[in-house]
Design a protein around this nucleic acid. Structure first.
Lengths: 127, 127
DNA sequence: CCGTATCCCTTACGATACTG
DNA sequence: CAGTATCGTAAGGGATACGG
C-alpha cells in the first residue's frame, strides 16, 4: 500500500465528500459570503437578489431552501404586511463560511496567475 | 451602502468566482488530493482510477484534461510499450491543493454535525 | 495501459408569469 | 416583499464498446 492516500480517502458519502458537494451548488458559497459580510450575518431575500449578479429568483429561493435543509442557515419570518423574511447563519454555517472566505481570498491572491492562464487558453483556442 | 459586501464582491468572471468553479467540477478536488498524497505529487492514470470509488474512465480523463487546461496539473507521457502516463501538480496546483486539504479536514472535523443533520433530514422525509 | 467515441439520462439552471 | 408554477435548455455525468 502506498503512503498517504488510499482507497478509503474518498468513500462515497463520507463527510469530506459531502462538504465538497456544498461547494458544488453554484450559488451556495456566494450566498454565505454575502450573509457573512452583513452586520449580524443576516439578510433579506431582496438584498441577496441584488447582491448576486446573475442569480434568478427561482435559484435564490431554491438554494436557500437547500441550505436551510443542510443546516447552514436559518429562516425567520416576520408576519407583517408585506412579509419580511430574514436569513441568518447557523453555527454550522458560521464554521463553514470560514472556508468560503479562505477560497475567496485565495482567488483574489491568485487572480494574476488565473488571468494569465485564461489568456493563454483563449489565444490557444483562437490560433 | 452597507458595510462589507456589495454588488462588486461576486462580479461574473472574477477570480474568486472562477476559483469556486474549480470546486464545482465533481472530481477535481479528489484528484488533486490523491495526487498530493502520493510521494512526489504524481500518479498514473490507473492508480487514480482505483483510488476514486465511483469515477468512470470517461470522467477521469475528461477531468484531467480540464485540469491540465486550467494549469493545475502537468501530463507527462513516457513512450514505452505499453505507454506510461504520469500526472503531477503544477505550482498553481500545489497552491490550490492547500485549499482542498482545508476543506477535507473541515469535513472530517465536522463529520458528526453533518451526520446528525443528515439523519434529521432523512427522518423528516420519511415521516 | 491509455485514450476515444457513442448513447442516454438526469440534474442544474434560467426566463417568465402569476399569487398572497 | 416573498414565494410558486411551468417550461425549456444546457451541462454533467455514467455505461459501454472500440482503437493505438
Amino acid at each position: 500500500m502506498q503512503p498517504g492516500s488510499d482507497e478509503q480517502d474518498w468513500r462515497e458519502d463520507c463527510a469530506p465528500r459531502r462538504t465538497m458537494e456544498i461547494f458544488a451548488t453554484k450559488w451556495t458559497s456566494m450566498i454565505l459570503h454575502t450573509l457573512h459580510a452583513q452586520h449580524g450575518g443576516a439578510a433579506r431575500n431582496g438584498m441577496l437578489l441584488r447582491s448576486l449578479p446573475g442569480i434568478s429568483k427561482k435559484m435564490l429561493v431554491q438554494t436557500l431552501r437547500e441550505m436551510e435543509e443542510s443546516g447552514l442557515i436559518d429562516r425567520h419570518v416576520e408576519s407583517t404586511v408585506p412579509p419580511a423574511v430574514e436569513y441568518s447563519l447557523t453555527p454550522l454555517g458560521i464554521r463553514f463560511v470560514a472556508l468560503v472566505e479562505l477560497v475567496y481570498a485565495w482567488g483574489r491572491d491568485n487572480a494574476d496567475a488565473l488571468d494569465q492562464l485564461q489568456a493563454r487558453a483563449t489565444s490557444r483556442r483562437n490560433g
